[in-house]
């Protein structure tokens, strides 16, 4: 009798732990970068497989754990017990060869379905975006939006809702990975290769993404975000993004523009409509309109921007953008004011 009380307690404790873990697992659908709250067809397709596999995993785990606990308690050492001497049981062994086979089939069928769905050709009218991974930021090149052939931007991806978007994925240096969990599974950005991915976002909102392949010192700081807009809002954004940078009218900001164009900034950065045509760093034509800086690692405030320009490597280890210790405070503030004006 004592033995069974112990067993019941053990099972109750196990059930409690499982329940706690289950609840904890569910709460992660609210995490900002959650993988289990899909907002696109691609992510939905993954989720439909995941749910099946998750519950199978739970059943197998509970089965094995219960069997282990029950056998451990039932057959623990007792003076009056003799171990039964047997070497196997053919019928049982066939049975538990079949159990994993059945589980595997249950997993394989939806898996292949989902593979076929997500690797089908994208719809004809898909928006085409080229994604280029850099150490440590993302470049986005949109085809035919806002009335121009190509719009170049960085670190904040803007997409229309309910329209397929077809990505061409590349890298400028090492291997990175493009991943917005709520919108789809990750695909690597491999130098020398062009990878493909497409999905159709189905909910307006802001989604977090992050590089998922180790890519050097500041891999942890290679983040980005995706804004899914209504069709109209997307058009507005695209028109603005496609146009040249705002020409300053305010005198202080004009001084900032002069400082920007007169310093090393233009070696790496482009500001459309000016003499800054550098290709190494992110395009800054509309940097003032972005919500974050330095690949999604801090809010786009004048203070953060000034700190970044002053000493980028202290914020992002190994950053290709150097520190500018010799830049005067006056010039720095003017440049920040200019860049912030580029909405």
């Amino acid at each position: 009798m004592r033995q069974f009380v112990g067993m019941r307690r053990a099972i109750a404790a196990a059930a409690f732990v499982l329940l706690a873990f289950g609840l904890a697992a569910c709460s992660f659908s609210d995490a900002p970068q959650t993988t289990i709250a899909p907002r696109s067809d691609n992510a939905d397709s993954i989720q439909s497989v995941y749910v099946i596999v998750f519950w199978l995993a739970v059943v197998v785990f509970i089965g094995v754990m219960l069997a282990t606990i029950v056998f451990a308690l039932m057959f623990r050492e007792r003076a009056d017990r003799q171990a039964k001497q047997f070497h196997g049981n053919a019928r049982l062994e066939v049975l538990w060869t079949l159990i994993p086979v059945i589980i595997v089939v249950i997993i394989a069928v939806p898996t292949f379905n989902s593979l076929a769905e997500t690797s089908a050709a994208p719809p004809e009218d898909a928006l085409h975006v080229e994604v280029i991974g850099h150490q440590w930021w993302f470049e986005f090149r949109y085809d035919n939006v806002g009335g121009v052939e190509q719009v170049v931007s960085a670190n904040e991806l803007h997409l229309p809702v309910d329209r397929a978007v077809d990505f061409t994925l590349k890298s400028a240096d090492v291997i990175h990975s493009f991943w917005v969990p709520q919108l789809g599974g990750k695909v690597d950005l491999v130098p020398g290769h062009e990878n493909d991915l497409w999905f159709t976002p189905n909910t307006v909102g802001e989604y977090l993404g992050q590089c998922a392949e180790f890519c050097g010192d500041s891999h942890a700081l290679m983040r980005f975000r995706v804004f899914v807009h209504s069709q109209a809002d997307f058009e507005t954004w695209a028109q603005n993004e496609a146009s040249d940078a705002v020409e300053p009218t305010d005198e202080a900001i004009m001084a900032g523009q002069a400082a920007f164009l007169g310093n090393a900034c233009i070696g790496c950065h482009t500001v459309q409509g000016t003499t800054a045509v550098g290709q190494v760093g992110p395009n800054l034509s509309h940097v003032g309109a972005r919500t974050t800086l330095a690949a999604g690692i801090m809010d786009n405030t004048p203070e953060n921007m000034a700190n970044w320009i002053r000493n980028a490597p202290s914020i992002k280890p190994g950053s290709i953008m150097p520190a500018f210790p010799a830049l005067s405070d006056e010039d720095l503030q003017a440049i920040v004011a200019y860049l912030q004006s580029l909405k």
Binding site: T35, I46, V49, A212
Partner: peptide, 14 residues
């Protein structure tokens, strides 16, 4: 076995 499924692996990998 869960991430032996390539779609799921797209979310679990790395």
């Amino acid at each position: 076995v869960m991430h032996s499924s390539p779609p799921i692996d797209g979310q679990h990998q790395d």
